[in-house]
C-alpha cells in the first residue's frame, strides 16, 4: 500500500520563480529565504518520494469565473505550464499519474467530496514555484504529480474545516492504493499577505507563528477559523493557508517537525516553509 511520508508546505510568491531563473539564491535579499529550504531538500534527497499530491490555488490561468470549481483534482498524463500574463517563464510539462488520480477521485467521491475532475490542467506559479524550490536540480523533476486545486479567488471560499477534512480524505485514499509507493503531500500559498485594498501590505507575524505551531500540534485549532477570519487575521491572500491545512490533514499518523523557516518580507508576503514527517 502507498504511504504518505510527509507534508511540505511553502509560500509560492511569483518573484521566487524569477529569483531562481536569474540565479539570485545567494543575493543578500534572497539568501535567508533559500537557505531555509536546505534541510527540506536533504530530507527529500534521503526519502526519494515517488508521488507528489500538490494542493494549490489557481490564479486565473486554468480556471476562469465562468466555471470555477471549489475543489478540482487533476487526472492528466502531464500538466503543462502557460503564460500567466506577467512574464514568468513557461516550462516543460510536469509528469502526471492518471492511474492514481482516478483512484483518488473515486475514493474522494466515495468519501462524499464531490470534486471536479480535470484531464487537462495548466499549472501556474502556485504549483510551479514550490516544485522548483523542492526539486531545484531537475525541470521537470522525475516525481509523478497530482494537482488538487482549491478555490481562493471567489467567495465563498471552502471552510477551513472542510479543507482539513479533504486532506484527511486524501490520506485515506492514498492508504488504499495497492502498490508500495512513497507519497509526499504539498500545500502551497501564504503566509500572511494582502495585495489589494487600502490594507495592502498587511502582514501578521503573530498569527503566522500560531499557524506553524497549530499545524504541527493542533490542526483542529486552525480548522475552527472561518475563511473570513483568515482574511481578517492573515490578509486577503493569507487565506491561502487553507492549502497548508489541507496538506496537514492528509497526515493520519504521528506527525513530527522536519524543519520550518519564516522570513518577512519576500515581495509583499511573509514567506514560510514547514516540513512535517508522518509515521
Amino acid at each position: 500500500m502507498a504511504r504518505i511520508i510527509g507534508a511540505l508546505t511553502s509560500s509560492h510568491i511569483p518573484s521566487i520563480g524569477n529569483a531562481i531563473s536569474n540565479g539570485k539564491q545567494q543575493d543578500a535579499y534572497w539568501k535567508r529565504f533559500f537557505d531555509g529550504y536546505q534541510p527540506v531538500l536533504q530530507w527529500l534527497d534521503a526519502q526519494q518520494p515517488d508521488v507528489a499530491i500538490v494542493l494549490y490555488n489557481d490564479h486565473g490561468l486554468n480556471f476562469f469565473l465562468n466555471n470555477l470549481p471549489t475543489f478540482a483534482v487533476g487526472a492528466a498524463q502531464e500538466y503543462i505550464t502557460k503564460d500567466e500574463g506577467w512574464g514568468l517563464p513557461v516550462f516543460p510539462a510536469y509528469h502526471g499519474y492518471p492511474e492514481m488520480s482516478w483512484h483518488l477521485i473515486e475514493s474522494l467521491i466515495e468519501q462524499e467530496f464531490d470534486i471536479a475532475m480535470c484531464q487537462e490542467m495548466a499549472m501556474d506559479h502556485a504549483f510551479i514555484n514550490p516544485m522548483r524550490l523542492f526539486w531545484p536540480n531537475e525541470n521537470p523533476p522525475k516525481i509523478k504529480t497530482i494537482p488538487v486545486a482549491i478555490n481562493t479567488v471567489q467567495f465563498p471560499l471552502p471552510r477551513p474545516a472542510r479543507c482539513f477534512a479533504l486532506g484527511k480524505a486524501i490520506g485515506h485514499a492514498v492508504a488504499s492504493w495497492p502498490t508500495d509507493e512513497k507519497v509526499v503531500v504539498i500545500g502551497t500559498g501564504g503566509m500572511s499577505h494582502q495585495l489589494d485594498g487600502e490594507r495592502a501590505g498587511f502582514i501578521n507575524k503573530k498569527f503566522d507563528e500560531m499557524c506553524m505551531e497549530a499545524l504541527l500540534n493542533d490542526p483542529e485549532r486552525l480548522a475552527r477559523y472561518s475563511a473570513l477570519d483568515l482574511v481578517r487575521e492573515a490578509g486577503a491572500q493569507g487565506a491561502e493557508i487553507i492549502m497548508w491545512l489541507a496538506a496537514r490533514g492528509a497526515l493520519l499518523g504521528n506527525v513530527s517537525k522536519i524543519h520550518s523557516s519564516y522570513h518577512i518580507p519576500i515581495s509583499n508576503t511573509a514567506a514560510g516553509v514547514l516540513a512535517m514527517a508522518n509515521q
Binding site: F155, Q194, L228, V231
Partner: peptide, 11 residues
C-alpha cells in the same frame, strides 16, 4: 462583514 481596507470578491 466588512474588514476595513479589504474588498471581498463575493458574488
Amino acid at each position: 462583514q466588512a474588514i476595513p481596507g479589504t474588498y471581498l470578491f463575493d458574488g
